[in-house]
């Protein structure tokens, strides 16, 4: 008794085609869409106060470290307390409705609840000061010494152009490793770490090898997973 139509004999070919396409598609979907560059980049949460980095860091030209003080000497980049805000806003724009939560925090002593934008997993050890404090590089035969470090913008992007701060780079292991393997284009003089849009001079670029030799970032597991 014939129980299947003749057309079913095409099934193996169809299945082989479907399996190939589906398999490749699945890998591609996971690879592209489940990656941090797709899932994390562009995350820019709303903050309790619409603080504008574009205004403060860009137009007013404030240094990053005015608020995120001591970031080059500590592991964590701190989020400024209300006092830092009030240092200026006790005098500037004291009536602004947008600043109402700040004044309230100042009066009550309750901390502002800023929403964290960049967060690394707990199993990853990251230290801001190692990246920002700078390593001593000897350039030239005269023994000139420069401190080379990584600038803020390498990881956080052009903060001075962001009205609302968001994630600019995929904060994922592969991305970390790219720089750890070859940091040359991200190294700059320690004086310039907070400069936005810094361009290396030709003279600086001549000494790239010495700069990298001074930094030697780890690429082994325990460099970050301690």
């Amino acid at each position: 008794m014939q129980i299947f139509p003749r057309e079913l004999n095409l099934l193996p070919m169809v299945l082989a085609g479907v399996a190939t396409v589906a398999g490749a598609g699945l890998v591609l979907v996971v690879w592209i869409y489940l990656s941090p560059s797709h899932l994390q980049v562009g995350y820019s949460p709303e903050q309790p106060v619409p603080y504008s980095h574009r205004l403060h860091a860009g137009e007013l030209g404030m240094d990053c470290r005015y608020c995120h003080a001591n970031v080059e000497r500590s592991a964590e980049a701190m989020v400024p307390p209300t006092q830092t805000c009030m240092g200026c806003h006790a005098i500037v724009r004291t009536e602004s409705a947008r600043l109402e939560p700040i004044r309230e925090s100042w009066e009550t002593g309750e901390a502002m609840e800023w929403v964290r934008v960049h967060q690394l997993p707990d199993h990853t050890y990251f230290n801001h000061s190692t990246h920002l404090y700078g390593a001593l590089a000897r350039t030239g035969e005269g023994g000139e010494e420069v401190r080379v470090a990584i600038g803020c913008e390498s990881c956080h992007g052009r903060i001075d152009q962001m009205e609302v701060v968001g994630v600019a780079e995929p904060i994922a292991m592969q991305w970390c490793l790219e720089c750890h393997r070859d940091p040359s284009e991200h190294l700059r003089p320690v004086e310039e770490i907070t400069t936005m849009g810094w361009e290396p001079s030709d003279e600086w670029l001549e000494h790239t090898d010495e700069h990298v030799a001074a930094v030697l970032p780890p690429t082994h597991c325990s460099g970050c997973h301690r």
Partner: peptide, 13 residues
């Protein structure tokens, strides 16, 4: 658990 499979991934390892 898919990290166990030798697939290209965002960790780069």
């Amino acid at each position: 658990d898919y990290y166990l499979a030798p697939l290209p991934n965002q960790m780069g390892i």
